[in-house]
């Protein structure tokens, strides 16, 4: 236990030492279908003029870690450069039968296999992040254990977190519920799909750097 505490201290020390010198690794985490890749595409479109990954309504569309390097965002005289890491959505269950309404059995099984591997990779990458954006669907229950596990793991690693309540364009969106579930974090409500409130999102991101 003492070793773990010492390791965390060393990790934090080196993270702060190099934060100003290297490219920050900014991770996008969250459950499947929260809009992580839509947000990644929005950021890339806003600052690079190109997309990052494919988006779909079928869960586990992103099944591999995707990295877009050298993104620089600017707001109110501040500047932040980072490598954006889009991760597969973390879930506790993957059933190939859930995909059968969208594709054949062979493809569904293959997708399920890739999804489980993607989740394992996403968890492994937690250690390599400097800052994390947790992207939650604001229409869904924020108290799911996956969300709490992700947040707890980032807290345990002293990794700064910005919580995004995505899909605020939908009527059922409830930012306050996310705020009350995670009162320790700033929550920014956005619609990554329509680019709503992205200015506030970038300002909050710059505050964290």
């Amino acid at each position: 236990m003492a070793f773990e505490i010492f390791k965390k201290f060393i990790d934090k020390f080196f993270r702060s030492l190099f934060r100003g010198k290297k490219k920050i690794r900014l991770g996008l985490y969250g459950p499947p279908n929260g809009g992580k890749t839509t947000l990644a595409n929005r950021i890339c479109q806003d600052w690079l003029g190109e997309d990052m990954g494919k988006v779909s309504n079928v869960a586990h569309e992103t099944r591999e870690i995707q990295i877009k390097e050298e993104i620089t965002i600017k707001s109110k005289g501040k500047e932040l450069s980072f490598n954006l890491v889009d991760t597969p959505g973390i879930a506790t269950r993957v059933d190939y039968e859930d995909f059968l309404k969208y594709m054949g059995e062979k493809d569904a099984k293959s997708r399920a296999k890739e999804a489980t591997k993607g989740i394992i990779d996403a968890i492994k990458w937690l250690d390599d992040m400097d800052t994390v954006i947790i992207c939650l669907d604001a229409t869904k229950d924020p108290y799911s254990q996956v969300n709490i596990t992700i947040v707890g793991n980032l807290q345990a690693r002293n990794i700064p977190v910005l919580l995004v309540a995505n899909k605020i364009d939908l009527k059922r969106a409830d930012i306050k519920k996310i705020e009350s579930a995670f009162p320790q974090y700033k929550v920014v409500g956005i619609s990554a799909k329509y680019g709503t409130n992205m200015d506030e999102f970038y300002e909050e991101l710059l505050k964290m750097a």
Binding site: I123, L126, Q155
Partner: peptide, 12 residues
């Protein structure tokens, strides 16, 4: 927290 993440990883 780390064990919960490991539980998900092992489940996968």
């Amino acid at each position: 927290d780390e064990e919960e993440a490991d539980l998900i990883r092992k489940t996968m």
